[in-house]
Write a protein that binds this DNA or RNA. Structure first.
Lengths: 225, 225
DNA sequence: ACCTGAACACCGTTCAAGT
DNA sequence: ACCTGAACACCGTTCAAGT
């Protein structure tokens, strides 16, 4: 009757790069890394599967754009120029972890290709700034910044990989409790040190461990070797 | 005629867990992470797709067994008890990197689930041994060992992810040269420090950077903080 | 116990066609 | 320029059946 509703009801039919990426992220969030198929994205956005190819040349391009968007969301304002360099890096690392862990299904995609987009470069600049202030020369600052990127992304990837089922991550405390239960089964005869440290190992995927490793890594950058 | 050749010619028809894992690894090596499909594994081993389910309940189980096998191949003998703890950890980290980078298609599978098999635990014990010798108490040794696992796996994952096309990795020098060419395009106005450090960044995926980060991380473990 | 044929519900991508 | 229908060559997994 009213000619304002064009076709079928359901998801808004504003097909665009943004709508596609939003739909992809929503699918990732509920179904995990494999849930963001071209066909499901198209269905979510109310369009035939091949319509997606009007905006992206292939699935890889969708993934790359999504990764770029996630990295671009990191709040550069958490880096307060007035604070010491360690605190700035810590704030950045915590913000990145918080944002990525909120989309566990997207994390494997981050590690699936080179991170060479503008958002990644911008984060790299922030790190290089902080490390220059720490007194590192240009070469050491570059090596240190990559060491940090490796640590941060590695920790986030392992944290997410620890949870088998898709969907939002349970609170940290619950995940640690589940790990503690699992580590109770480690045979102490074969792995004595592991069995003895089981309670600490249960906390590997938590914030305390994340900061412990980060701070030790930062300390290593400014220690005579 | 001769009744020694039972059926068709082609791949030996010794179906078994081992044959399946070997076929999967071979497929991974030539076609990348997505190439090890159940159907292709079955074809390579000369069997109907669903025959694989006699040995593994699902594809995830195949992947887990393959990961366990790869981690189990790490040569514990590279850890010479007579050498200082840093050297032992370095040897282990280099051996693991060498073995995993030889199968780039398998690396994404490593990060796709928890590493809680016996081979992973055995490597963890080696780390805990070395870190205890470094003077760390049980808790610090555990935190440090996980920091190392994160660093090593993160570095290997990013190194492999840097190469888009499947198949064996080109020699390190070639990959670095390709990165150098790519970094030449970074706009110096927007990313001044990145552009200035482009030559170092080209070497991020190399052995020198791997050892730099590893040694700094180790140094951070024994620095007063 | 071990394997097969056939089927189911999926994939990504291409091509010709329609507006 | 943007979207669709139909098709192609794939997936993982299940089920009933055969030996």
């Amino acid at each position: 009757m009213a000619d304002t509703d064009r076709r079928k009801p359901g998801p808004r039919r504003a097909l665009s790069e943004d709508a596609i990426l939003e739909a992809a992220l929503a699918l990732l969030d509920v179904g995990g890394a494999d849930a963001a198929s071209i066909r499901r994205i198209a269905a979510a956005v109310g369009v035939a599967p091949n319509a997606v190819y009007t905006y992206f040349p292939d699935k890889g391009a969708v993934v790359r754009a999504l990764v770029e968007r996630l990295l671009g969301e990191v709040d550069h304002a958490v880096v307060d120029p007035g604070r010491p360099w360690q605190e700035r890096i810590e704030a950045l690392a915590l913000d990145l972890r918080r944002r990525l862990v909120a989309h566990p299904g997207a994390v494997p995609l981050l590690l699936s290709g080179p991170m060479d987009g503008p958002a990644a470069l911008a984060l790299g600049e922030l790190l290089l700034d902080a490390l220059a202030e720490a007194g590192l020369d240009a070469t050491a600052a570059a090596r240190a910044s990559y060491t940090l990127i490796v640590y941060v992304l590695g920790a986030i990837a392992l944290e997410v990989a620890d949870v088998p089922q898709p969907g939002p991550l349970a609170p940290e405390g619950e995940r640690i409790a589940a790990r503690r239960a699992a580590f109770a089964a480690v045979p102490a005869e074969a792995f004595p040190r592991t069995a003895a440290a089981a309670d600490v190992m249960a906390t590997y995927i938590g914030t305390e461990q994340y900061l412990w490793g980060l701070r030790r890594t930062l300390a290593g950058f400014v220690t005579p070797i």
